[in-house]
Simulated assay, not measured.
Amino acid sequence: MAKYIMWGSYCENVLEKRAPYRQAHLDGLTKQKAEGVLITLGPTKDTTQVFGIYEAEDEATVRQLVENDPYWKNSIWTEYTVKEWIQAF
């Protein structure tokens, strides 16, 4: 399977706005991790961007995961890009 990186942006006042959706978001990520599709995901220290690494059949699978996340559905993540990634080391 191919690996993909996801870069995204957070909304303004993310720490306050994410609160109602945080547990559902974390539960979904835990499930993706257990299924082996999510390698890692997290915010930048300044909480302006999110970075993730996925292992999936195709880019469409990653996009579906992102767009079904409560953070995307509730505009906590405001934009994102997905690129196939070649792990050199």
Rank of each mutant, 00 (worst) to 15 (best):
M1N: 07
M1A: 12
M1C: 07
A2S: 14
Y4E: 03
M6E: 09
M6C: 10
W7R: 15
W7N: 12
W7L: 14
G8W: 06
G8E: 08
G8Q: 04
S9W: 07
S9C: 03
Y10D: 13
Y10V: 05
Y10A: 08
C11R: 12
C11W: 09
E12V: 11
N13Q: 14
V14A: 14
L15I: 05
L15A: 07
E16Y: 08
K17S: 07
K17A: 12
K17M: 09
R18D: 06
R18A: 03
A19V: 15
A19F: 04
A19N: 05
P20N: 02
P20M: 04
Y21E: 09
R22S: 00
R22C: 00
R22Y: 05
Q23R: 10
A24F: 00
H25Y: 02
H25F: 03
H25L: 05
L26T: 06
D27F: 00
D27H: 01
D27A: 11
G28F: 03
G28W: 04
L29E: 08
T30R: 14
T30E: 11
T30I: 02
K31E: 12
K31I: 07
K33S: 06
K33E: 06
E35D: 13
V37T: 13
L38Y: 02
L38D: 04
L38P: 03
I39Q: 13
I39H: 07
T40A: 13
T40C: 06
L41I: 14
L41Y: 13
L41G: 05
G42I: 05
G42T: 06
P43A: 15
P43K: 04
P43V: 08
T44Q: 08
K45N: 07
K45Y: 10
D46E: 07
T47W: 04
T47P: 00
T48A: 12
Q49H: 12
Q49Y: 08
Q49A: 09
V50F: 11
V50P: 06
F51Y: 09
G52I: 01
I53A: 01
I53P: 00
Y54W: 15
D58V: 01
D58Q: 10
D58S: 15
E59H: 10
E59M: 15
T61K: 14
T61A: 13
V62C: 05
R63V: 09
R63N: 10
Q64W: 04
Q64K: 15
Q64F: 03
L65N: 13
V66H: 01
V66R: 08
E67L: 03
N68E: 09
D69K: 01
P70A: 03
P70I: 06
W72A: 12
W72T: 10
K73N: 09
K73Y: 00
N74W: 06
N74T: 04
N74M: 05
N74A: 07
T78C: 01
E79P: 00
Y80K: 09
Y80M: 11
Y80R: 10
T81A: 11
T81I: 13
T81S: 14
V82L: 11
K83S: 07
E84T: 12
E84N: 08
W85G: 01
W85P: 02
I86G: 00
I86L: 11
I86K: 12
A88I: 15
